[in-house]
Simulated assay, not measured.
Amino acid sequence: MRSIDPLLTELVGWFTWLPWWAESLALIVGCCAVVLPLHGVAFRAMQRAAAGKSLFWRSLVARTHGPSRLGLLIVAISAAAAPLTWDVRLVVNQVLLVALVTLCGWCCAIAIHIWSVVYLRGYKLDTEDNLLARKHVTQVRILRRAAITLVVLVTISVALMTFEPVRQYGVSLLASAGAAGLILGLAMQPVLSNLVAGIQIAITQPIRIEDAVIVENEWGWVEEITATYVVVRLWDWRRLVLPLTYFIQKPFQNWTRDGASLIGSVMLYLDHTAPIEAMRRKLAEIAAGSRLWDGNVVNLQVSDARETVIEVRMLVSARNAPQTWDLRCEVREKMLAYLRTEHPGALPRHRAEWVAPGAEGRHGPAAGAGPGVRVETVPQ
Rank of each mutant, 00 (worst) to 15 (best):
L8R: 11
G345Y: 00
F252E: 09
V232K: 08
E23G: 12
T162P: 08
I248C: 05
M46Y: 06
H272S: 00
E223F: 05
A318N: 01
T245H: 02
I286E: 02
L84C: 13
Y246V: 07
I28T: 05
E307L: 14
S303E: 10
C329N: 12
W293Y: 05
R306W: 08
P6G: 10
T9L: 10
T228K: 03
K53W: 02
K250M: 08
E216K: 15
R69E: 14
R144N: 09
P251K: 07
V312G: 06
S157V: 13
A99Y: 03
G372I: 08
A202Q: 07
I142L: 04
P357Y: 05
V12H: 03
L84N: 12
S24P: 05
V378P: 05
T273P: 09
E307M: 15
I114M: 11
P190M: 01
I276N: 03
W237A: 02
A33C: 10
M161Q: 10
M314V: 12
G264F: 01
V61I: 01
A133M: 11
A212Y: 12
T204W: 06
P365A: 09
R257E: 08
N296Q: 06
S261V: 06
Q47L: 03
F43Q: 02
V35G: 01
Y169W: 14
A287S: 06
A99G: 13
W235E: 15
G181T: 04
A76R: 10
W325G: 12
